[in-house]
Simulated scan of single mutants.
Amino acid sequence: MMEITSGTTEDGQWIREQLITYNRQHVPAALYTEAEQYCFLAWNEDEELLGGVTASYVWNHLQVHFLWIDPENRTGGVGKQLMAKIESIAEEKSCSKILLDTFNFQAPGFYKKLGFEEYGRLDDHPAKGQTQYFFVKYL
Rank of each mutant, 00 (worst) to 15 (best):
Y111Q: 06
Q37M: 15
P28T: 07
A42S: 05
T131I: 14
L62D: 00
V136Y: 04
G12T: 11
R121S: 07
F110C: 06
L49G: 01
I86H: 00
G115W: 06
Q37N: 07
L82Q: 01
M1H: 03
N104V: 12
V53C: 02
Q13I: 15
G115N: 06
L19Q: 11
P108R: 04
K93M: 05
F105Q: 07
A127Y: 05
A35W: 08
V78E: 04
A127E: 13
G109W: 08
K112F: 04
K137Q: 09
G7I: 08
V27H: 04
D70R: 03
V64Q: 09
Q106L: 08
K137E: 13
G12H: 05
T54F: 11
Y22C: 06
Q25L: 09
Q37L: 14
S96P: 08
G129R: 03
I20E: 05
R121V: 15
T9N: 03
A35E: 14
S88V: 08
N44K: 04
E3P: 03
D46V: 14
L19P: 09
R24D: 06
V64C: 05
W43I: 12
A29L: 15
K93D: 02
A127G: 07
G76F: 10
W43V: 11
H65K: 09
I86A: 02
R16A: 15
K128G: 01
Y119Q: 04
